[in-house]
Simulated assay, not measured.
Amino acid sequence: MRGTVRRSLITGTVFALATTLPFGIAPAVADPTPDSRHLPLPDQFTVLRTGSRGIEVHNAKKRLKGLGFFPGNLSPLYDSALRMTVWAFQKANGLKPVDRIDLPTWQALLRPRRIRPLVTYAERERAEIDLRRQLLIAWRDGKPVLVTHISTGARRPYCEKGHCGFASTPVGDYRVGVRVPGWSTGILGAMFYPVYFNGGIAIHGSTLVPRFPASHGCVRVPLHNALDLYRFLQPGTPVYVRRPEALAGRAMRVRGERRPRIPKARPVEAPHRSYKNSSRPGRSTGHRTGGDAGGHR
């Protein structure tokens, strides 16, 4: 009985925090300080997993949305969209991505880390792609407004459907170019709302977004985040791709340093459209492979 009451109190706390935050805007929270006096006891939480259902799942989704991690619908079901959203939140908070909301994840939901930019000289409205943590962060007015789990280039050679290359998502500064609404197909598979930013490399929704880099070079995002990113990433929006461990030991850029010029996005021929222009993935008429862009080399 006591454990049930404690769980209810904590759930109510999470719900109260969620309802006071503007949806889609991540708050500028301070990094948590290790103070055991304010940490909840282990029996105050219920571990949630795929298939779990109830008010605690709904409240967790609402809290994540308030922090800028969009879990899709706010139903009381722990579905695949919430599963990948939890991965993103765990990675952003220095936790190992697991298929559950456990005690460390509940504690992070109560006291989340501040999301820090990868690029200090970046424009205030931009997308940042973290290849190490496999995260994409959309920024507006200097604030993170959408954080999502991604899967980028697998960093290995491939030969598929008569096309060979090296699966890589190159580090660099780019800008959004061609955008294609709905489902489209390229030489290596299907894409949902692709946004090209580096030749044939695009950010696009996919049915297959594992916890590891697995694409041919594109940036795969969960289907439930693809349309929001498509609307955010207008032509000309900067896209910064970084691998933070590769920057270890290099001096941080300081304020006042000259900002490098970001080249315009290289033109790419829009891929063949074989799907209806619909935001409903189930209306596609062909086979969806979760593949990548038609112009990718």
Rank of each mutant, 00 (worst) to 15 (best):
D130W: 11
E128N: 03
L110P: 06
A108C: 12
A127T: 06
R114L: 13
Y121R: 11
T105H: 00
A127W: 02
L103Q: 14
I115G: 06
R111Q: 13
W106D: 08
R132D: 14
R133G: 00
L131K: 14
R133E: 14
Y121I: 00
I129Q: 03
V119A: 09
A127I: 11
L109G: 01
L103T: 10
L118F: 10
Y121D: 12
A122E: 00
L131D: 09
L118M: 11
T120Y: 09
R113Q: 13
D130H: 11
E123H: 14
V119N: 04
P104T: 05
L118T: 01
L110H: 09
I101S: 05
R113W: 12
Y121L: 14
L109K: 01
R133T: 02
I101V: 12
L118H: 00
E128K: 01
P104E: 09
L131T: 03
L109N: 07
L103F: 11
R111C: 05
L103Y: 07
P112D: 02
L103W: 07
D130N: 15
T120E: 13
D99G: 13
R116H: 14
L118R: 04
E125G: 08
R132C: 02
T105E: 06
Q107G: 03
D102F: 00
R111M: 12
D102E: 07
D99N: 13
R113M: 12
D102G: 10
A122F: 07
R124Y: 05
L110V: 07
P117S: 06
Y121P: 06
A108R: 15
E125K: 15
P112A: 00
E128Y: 05
D102M: 08
E128G: 06
L110A: 10
T105M: 02
L109C: 08
R114D: 06
A108T: 05
R124M: 12
R132N: 13
I115P: 07
L110D: 06
L109Q: 07
E123L: 11
